[in-house]
Design a protein around this nucleic acid. Structure first.
Length: 494
RNA sequence: GGGACGUUAGCUCAGGCGGUAGAGCAGCGGACUUUUAAUCCGUUGGUCGCGGGUUCGAUUCCCGCACGUCCCA
């Protein structure tokens, strides 16, 4: 893009500053305070009390506003904690500093130091006795009243979004806090945080298409991981017993308000536990987060109150579908009835499609979006659960649950399959699906089967989608609002 | 992949049934010592997303494309 008149003017200002012996990008300045510290210390004092304080305080940040009254000006400085007002007077500043002030633009990074007082409107203010330019901005800030609202620009120029929109800063502060709280919770349960490969020779642990890359020296294909699952279970087999990882997964799939190609997942594995233990564990974790964030189990997401008070509803996939369709319990166990139901819905399953897959299609199409309050959906078909332990009473289904809140899957967990021979059979079943054209069927992983042959303790494991959880807890409608740099198509122009 | 909507100044937005466009903020010049969207006077700034078609003439109409948002698959 052609250089704007505004930028050209600013470059001329920089030249003029340099000609006057002023470095527009100096370094080494120390700042003693943040806006919030000063506000906390002095915000409650009146001018009489403040007048007794002879110390000077310094503040650095972005110049967000200038209100000029001839020989006096009010400025607004924004740092990481908020904003504080500065008062600039010709008579209290060194002449060189005042000259510099006249050359500043909104958007510049500056430093001021001086005594603190309150204006007659009661606003806490630093009366500048010194002023420095720390970094000159060449581009103007977005409009001061409406800010930056264009969604595309907000994502592509996140720095402007963060400068202009306090809500956005708050969301990402909260995201960080949530992840810290999760770590606190996991630590309190004696878990070990680990890191496992993001680049894997086989992309296993989930049903998804991977991104592929190539290692030049090793001369081998590698895949960005779609899940850390198989590595974490190797660690459990190795005796670590309680492990978790909070890290990115990569799935080569569509992008939507709930999907980003790279997303953050916490996976954890707990030896000597079952999926039923994890339901309680999940309730406790979410409640811990809500207590810390909201002071209780209830919060509002997109206009709907969500109540995390345990115990949460539990239902099997089949019960959920039967109740939703208003059909008699057990109906879905009959393959003919199942096919007919699917056909009625226009789902067109193939004659040879596994019953479990048809059931899941109906569930995903019709039931998922109805699960508003937190709900554990259990007993997933074995066909779609190649790493889960079979239910002892009904081996066509697995001891697995997914957690749904506000119609979206937030977590997925199961009692882990630790029988190496069953695991090999499951992989072979997946291999047949893959050969039949299912690109998301699990790959064969002999190395993992060999791990299980060394005996993995009975274990339960769970994955929690951190971005989706943060969406819920920050009332964000789109996953792009909780990921700092969401994936967008590249644009040629700047 | 399909549908709807959007793309006009740095930002937020108007507008034009076809004759190359306006406002506010920002910028620039000026006034102003308690404002906080400061105010007042003056003023600069545009390949109207990109490409093609129709036309004497397209930013406007038509087609295609790009990018984005939302919805559906």
């Amino acid at each position: 893009m052609e250089e704007s008149e505004l930028t050209r003017t600013r470059k001329e200002k920089i030249s003029a500053l340099r000609a006057a012996g002023i470095d527009p990008y100096p370094n080494g300045v120390r700042v003693d305070n943040t806006s919030a510290e000063l506000r906390a210390r002095f915000g409650a004092l009146d001018n009489e009390a403040l007048g007794g304080i002879k110390d000077t305080f310094s503040l650095a940040g972005r110049l967000m506003a200038v209100r000029n009254f001839g020989k006096a000006s009010f400025i607004s400085i924004q740092d990481r904690k908020g904003r504080l007002q500065g008062f600039i007077q010709k008579k209290t500043l060194p002449e060189a500093d005042y000259d510099l002030f006249r050359r500043l633009d909104v958007g510049d990074i500056i430093y001021i130091a001086g005594r603190i007082f309150k204006t007659k409107t009661g606003e806490l203010t630093i009366e500048a006795g010194r002023l420095r330019l720390l970094a000159k901005a060449l581009r103007p800030l977005p409009e001061k009243w409406h800010g930056l609202t264009d969604v595309e620009t907000r994502y592509r120029r996140r720095h402007l979004d963060l400068i202009m929109n306090p809500d956005v800063r708050e969301t990402f502060h909260r995201r960080s806090r949530i992840i810290k709280l999760i770590r606190d919770f996991m630590d309190s349960r004696d878990f070990l945080e680990v890191e496992t490969p993001m680049m894997q020779p086989r992309a296993g642990g989930a049903a998804a298409k991977p991104f592929k890359t190539f290692h030049n020296t090793l001369g081998m294909d590698l895949y960005l991981r779609i899940a850390p699952e198989l590595y974490l279970k190797r660690l459990v087999t190795g005796g670590l017993e309680r492990v978790y990882e909070i890290n990115r997964n990569f799935r080569n799939e569509g992008i939507s308000t709930f999907h980003n190609p790279e997303f953050t997942m916490m996976e954890f594995y707990l030896a000597y536990a079952t999926y039923e233990d994890l339901m309680q564990f999940t309730e406790e974790l979410f409640l811990f987060l809500a207590e810390n964030l909201f002071g209780g189990p209830r919060f509002v997401y997109q206009g709907t109150e969500i109540d995390l008070t345990p115990p949460w509803r539990r239902t099997t996939v089949r019960e959920a579908v039967e109740r939703h369709l208003g059909i008699a319990p057990g109906t879905l166990d009959d393959r003919g009835r199942l096919l007919a139901l699917a056909a009625d819905m226009g789902l067109e399953p193939q004659e040879n499609t596994a019953a479990g897959r048809i059931l899941m299609t109906i569930f995903e199409e019709k039931v998922e979006k109805e699960l508003i309050q937190p709900t554990f959906v259990t007993q997933y078909p074995v066909e779609v659960s190649p790493l889960s332990r079979r239910n002892p009473r009904n081996p066509d289904f697995t001891d697995r649950f997914e957690l749904y809140v506000h119609g979206r899957e937030i977590a997925n967990a199961f009692s882990e399959l630790n029988d190496p021979e069953d695991q090999r059979e499951r992989f072979l079943m997946q291999l047949r699906e893959r050969e039949a054209g299912d690109e998301e069927a699990h790959v064969m992983d002999e190395d993992y089967v060999q791990t299980l042959e060394s005996a993995m303790p009975p274990t339960a494991g769970e994955g929690i989608g951190i971005d989706r959880l943060v969406m819920l807890l920050t009332n964000s409608a789109s996953i792009r609002d909780v990921i700092l740099f969401p994936q967008l198509r590249i644009r040629d122009e700047l």
